[in-house]
């Protein structure tokens, strides 16, 4: 009974605080002190829009999509593919901004030095066949979708048929660690995570090499629910978009990590949607 009354109380309380605007974001690397860093982003958005803004920490992209769908967050920083999923689930929602880097994002295929695969090839090498391979997270655009697309295009076969074993490391940093340790021969990673790892000296580029990079594709973006104007005031979407586009403080931007945000819309992600459907990962 105590629990039930607590629940009832909480439900009532929930409706009182309904005017708080919630957002979530998962950076593609370095989740250390996430709450602290994104609370500063929340403060910035609040200052710019006059709304009461709160950051909701979320663990994974599927969880971010459910939070968006359940209206626990009204704004989210999604990957390319998860953004498409989220917008399909919440009709009326729109992509409003993407990182400067996201208009031309890439994946790297990386391999350990002892695989004998040469660096920087012009196409995916045939010698990869029969080696072991790991993707990143299952619904990652840069760690799964686009690498799988280009693998199929090159070999005209499923990854499971190309490689002796296909793993899902769950994370770009982990893909790098597993390839560096020789647990998997080849892996596919988000290029920004790779560049950061090389810059920090977390990976020895003599031991692990980039063997091929994909052509550019659109990736991460901010997506907002379609019902926010109705709920928070007429020009909320425009205000939030403006605040994101004019974010210039490097200490805020490095949380994502991006050099700035530019405008985006749903159509920018049509290639991602088509690829997802072509690979049978998204239902038409």
């Amino acid at each position: 009974m105590r629990w039930l009354s607590a629940l009832a109380l909480a439900l009532a309380a929930g409706s009182v605080h309904a005017e708080t605007f919630h957002f979530t974001a998962i950076p593609d690397e370095d989740e250390a002190r996430l709450v602290e860093r994104f609370e500063r982003v929340a403060d910035y958005l609040a200052e710019q829009t006059g709304l009461d803004v709160e950051y909701v920490p979320v663990k994974s992209y599927p969880a971010a999509v459910s939070a968006f769908r359940n209206n626990q967050v009204q704004l989210a920083w999604f990957g390319g593919l998860t953004g498409v999923q989220a917008r399909a689930l919440v009709p009326g929602s729109q992509a409003i901004a993407q990182g400067v880097e996201d208009a031309e994002f890439r994946s790297y295929f990386i391999a350990g030095a002892d695989t004998g695969l040469a660096a920087d090839q012009s196409q995916l090498p045939e010698d990869m066949e029969g080696m072991s391979f790991t993707f990143g997270a299952r619904t990652s655009t840069s760690g799964r979708l686009m690498p799988e697309y280009y693998l199929r295009q090159r070999f005209n076969a499923s990854p499971q048929a190309i490689f002796s074993r296909v793993g899902f490391s769950g994370d770009h940093s982990r893909t790098i660690a597993l390839v560096a340790a020789g647990s998997f021969d080849v892996g596919a990673v988000n290029y920004k995570v790779w560049d950061a790892a090389v810059a920090d000296g977390r990976v020895d580029s003599d031991e692990v090499k980039v063997i091929w990079q994909t052509p550019p594709y659109p990736d991460y973006q901010w997506t907002i629910r379609g019902d926010v104007d109705e709920r928070f005031g007429d020009d909320t979407t425009a205000q939030i978009q403006q605040a994101l586009l004019s974010m210039s403080d490097p200490s805020l931007l490095e949380s994502f990590p991006r050099s700035g945000f530019i405008a985006a819309d749903n159509d920018d992600y049509a290639p991602i949607e088509e690829t997802g459907q072509a690979l049978d990962l998204l239902r038409p």
């Binding site: 629990w3 629940l7 109380l9 909480a10 439900l11 929930g14 409706s15 309904a18 359940n70 626990q72």
Partner: peptide, 12 residues
């Protein structure tokens, strides 16, 4: 401990 439990959802 009951005070620690949360957050409570607004169920749609």
């Amino acid at each position: 401990t009951p005070w620690l439990l949360g957050p409570w959802p607004a169920v749609d």
